[in-house]
Write a protein that binds this DNA or RNA. Structure first.
Lengths: 137, 137
DNA sequence: ATAAACCTTACCATCAGGTGAAGGTCAAGT
DNA sequence: ACTTGACCTTCACCTGATGGTAAGGTTTAT
């Protein structure tokens, strides 16, 4: 199986497959006489694993650890769980950060008339030190 | 006022002030005889505007538009509001995406024993096609 | 005079890719 | 046998916003 077929079967682009190999996430693939990378079912399974982990937002560094754990039958599931929980905690942080920004922004947007006049509470909020939501601490 | 003082007064790093100037977000600052950038109160106000917009997550490209609107007294507040609402919609998208990932991950994590055994539902979920939460659509 | 603290430009790194060039290879049709 | 088009190869540069580093000039205080 060439890289194009592996890419189609896994949903990981050719570019990214080469990149994953280059950065050590994947072992160097065997080559044909012409130098083409060759993949088998096992390689596609690894690509699918990476794809699903990326879709969940795991960083490539963490996926490297996950792949190592996956292929190590002496693993402890506690290690996997700890990694996932660490990542989940970061997700929670990110979500709260976005929600905080959204809430502050909504406060400004609600006060903006949104008409033909230049007066705008959004610009005022950015120009003046205290955003209306942050001031009464 | 040198760049260091402006940075301290605004909370924007020296690096970023130079970068904002280089990319056209800020006008080129006047220079001292030795070639040092010079800032006044107005420059600091602009930096503060940028900083607050960045803290709310606005991209530099959007901040450029916001700065232009801010300095244009013929603006319509509707234009500012539309920009902010567009950004807020993207924020909502991002939040939902993170929440979806979190929820899928939580489903896997909850099923993982987290003990000394190798069996792990997280790895299984990544290795098998259907994640437990995505299947019963 | 010298040392510390400032400033300058210019380059490299990050993260997870995307894009494009320049060229080699393979399989099918003519 | 030859051409075409789809595939493959490596190399290198782009994104966004920021941090870092290096080499060198300037200012200020001792």
């Amino acid at each position: 199986m060439n890289i194009g077929e592996a890419a189609a079967a896994s949903g990981v682009s050719r570019k990214m497959i080469r990149y994953y190999e280059e950065t050590g996430l994947l072992a160097t693939a065997p080559r044909s006489d012409a130098g083409y990378r060759l993949y088998n079912e096992s390689g596609v399974q690894q690509l699918l694993f990476i794809k699903r982990a990326r879709d969940l937002g795991f960083s490539l560094e963490r996926i490297k650890t996950l792949l190592d754990l996956w292929q190590n039958t002496d693993r402890h599931s506690a290690d996997v769980k700890a990694l996932a929980q660490q990542y989940m905690a970061e997700l929670d942080q990110d979500i709260m950060h976005l929600q905080s920004m959204r809430q502050q922004l909504a406060g400004l947007v609600d006060q903006c008339h949104g008409d033909d006049e230049p007066a705008c509470s959004i610009l005022d909020g950015l120009a003046q030190a205290n955003s209306p939501l942050a001031s009464p601490t």
